[in-house]
Amino acid sequence: MEKPQLPSCLDNIIVVLSRTSHPANIGSAARAMKTMGLTRLTLVSPHLMATPMTPEPPSFDADHAQDFRLPEESFVLASGARDVLEEARIVASLDEALADTVVSCALTSRKRELTAPMHTPRELAPALLQTAAAGEQVALVFGNETFGLSIEEVQSCNRLMTINGNPHYFSLNLAQAVQVVTYELFSHTDVPMDYLQQAAHLATHEQVAGMVAHLQNVMGELGFFERRNEARLMRRMAALFDRAQVNTEDIDILRGFFKTVSKQVERSQ
């Protein structure tokens, strides 16, 4: 079965990572978003830290934002989403990243001096997809791994989104947060999963009858019918397999098993 096409509205949804510090998190976030059908990534003023794999991270120059190049560590963690990183937009400010958007969701889990209500990704997803389906641009904005979004960055957005979780311990990695939010969006697209199911090849009447006859022979070899009504029992077995709607693979497995049993019977005699 052919894989279904993704809804075109997903092309109007942008994942924005602001002031990300760990190179691996950028790659992991790209992988998470592509898994859910999103490919548009914008990086706002990335300030990468040194890591064992990236001891000398590239520095970001706001005056030459498009000249910034991600280190190989980001691409390694992106796995099959390398294209998302290669086509990522690099900008110096969140206002620049959001310039063409109609709806922008700030992901935050901190108490703030803001009166706007916070919603979960599941609550906001239908409206976000509707906006994207109308051809408008939607942004999902994620802050720095340590400090999150600043109050100014949150105020630049017109929606507040939070991932509900354990109030006594809530600590999501940046890529995990991206995965949760993008999954909730994708779950509202109703993309069918039929392509994941193995095609069933139902067994024919002749194949089922042949398998039942094989079973009857093996049961006879085992002496199963010595004190039982053979004809009545086999009618019930035939009816059982008819109700089960077995496929050809089931038939092959059962007949392989019957052959093994017959060989064991021969050896024991």
Score class of each variant (00 low, 15 high):
residue 164 N to Q: 15
residue 147 F to R: 15
residue 152 E to V: 07
residue 113 E to P: 01
residue 127 A to V: 15
residue 96 E to W: 04
residue 157 C to N: 07
residue 116 A to M: 12
residue 104 S to V: 11
residue 91 V to A: 02
residue 156 S to I: 13
residue 131 T to Y: 01
residue 127 A to I: 15
residue 138 V to D: 02
residue 114 L to W: 01
residue 102 V to K: 13
residue 133 A to T: 13
residue 92 A to S: 12
residue 84 V to H: 03
residue 130 Q to W: 07
residue 127 A to T: 15
residue 119 H to W: 06
residue 162 T to N: 13
residue 143 G to A: 10
residue 133 A to M: 07
residue 152 E to D: 06
residue 152 E to N: 06
residue 151 I to C: 01
residue 109 S to E: 04
residue 138 V to R: 10
residue 91 V to D: 00
residue 113 E to R: 13
residue 157 C to G: 05
residue 112 R to F: 02
residue 93 S to H: 13
residue 160 L to Y: 04
residue 100 D to R: 14
residue 142 F to K: 07
residue 157 C to W: 02
residue 109 S to L: 08
residue 144 N to T: 10
residue 115 T to D: 05
residue 101 T to R: 11
residue 95 D to G: 14
residue 156 S to V: 13
residue 103 V to W: 00
residue 136 E to W: 02
residue 131 T to K: 14
residue 137 Q to C: 01
residue 119 H to T: 12
residue 90 I to G: 00
residue 149 L to H: 06
residue 92 A to L: 04
residue 156 S to T: 15
residue 148 G to Q: 08
residue 109 S to A: 15
residue 117 P to K: 09
residue 117 P to F: 02
residue 134 A to P: 05
residue 100 D to T: 14
residue 97 A to W: 05
residue 92 A to Y: 01
residue 156 S to Y: 00
residue 109 S to C: 11
residue 84 V to M: 01
residue 131 T to F: 01
residue 151 I to A: 00
residue 111 K to Q: 09
residue 105 C to N: 09
residue 135 G to D: 04
residue 141 V to G: 06
residue 162 T to Y: 13
residue 98 L to K: 11
residue 164 N to F: 05
residue 145 E to R: 15
residue 97 A to N: 05
residue 108 T to D: 03
residue 136 E to F: 02
residue 94 L to C: 07
residue 163 I to S: 13
residue 140 L to W: 08
residue 131 T to L: 03
residue 83 D to H: 08
residue 113 E to M: 05
residue 136 E to K: 15
residue 140 L to M: 10
residue 162 T to L: 12
residue 152 E to G: 09
residue 96 E to D: 11
residue 152 E to Q: 09
residue 151 I to R: 10
residue 84 V to L: 05
residue 135 G to L: 09
residue 152 E to P: 00
residue 161 M to I: 14
residue 154 V to C: 04
residue 116 A to D: 06
residue 126 P to S: 11
residue 105 C to A: 11
residue 155 Q to T: 14
residue 159 R to Y: 02
residue 121 P to K: 15
residue 94 L to Y: 02
residue 109 S to R: 15
residue 155 Q to R: 15
residue 146 T to D: 05
residue 136 E to V: 12
residue 103 V to T: 09
residue 135 G to K: 14
residue 100 D to M: 08
residue 86 E to M: 04
residue 120 T to N: 06
residue 139 A to C: 01
residue 84 V to A: 00
residue 149 L to R: 08
residue 118 M to D: 04
residue 96 E to M: 13
residue 136 E to I: 11
residue 109 S to H: 08
residue 108 T to Q: 05
residue 137 Q to H: 05
residue 141 V to E: 02
residue 140 L to Y: 02
residue 141 V to Y: 02
residue 121 P to G: 11
residue 121 P to M: 13
residue 145 E to T: 15
residue 164 N to D: 04
residue 160 L to V: 12
residue 94 L to M: 03
residue 91 V to L: 03
residue 161 M to C: 13
residue 123 E to F: 02
residue 139 A to Q: 03
residue 91 V to T: 08
residue 146 T to L: 13
residue 154 V to R: 06
residue 151 I to G: 00
residue 100 D to G: 07
residue 85 L to R: 05
residue 108 T to K: 09
residue 83 D to C: 04
residue 122 R to Y: 03
residue 88 A to T: 10
residue 147 F to K: 15
residue 145 E to S: 12
residue 87 E to T: 11
residue 123 E to A: 14
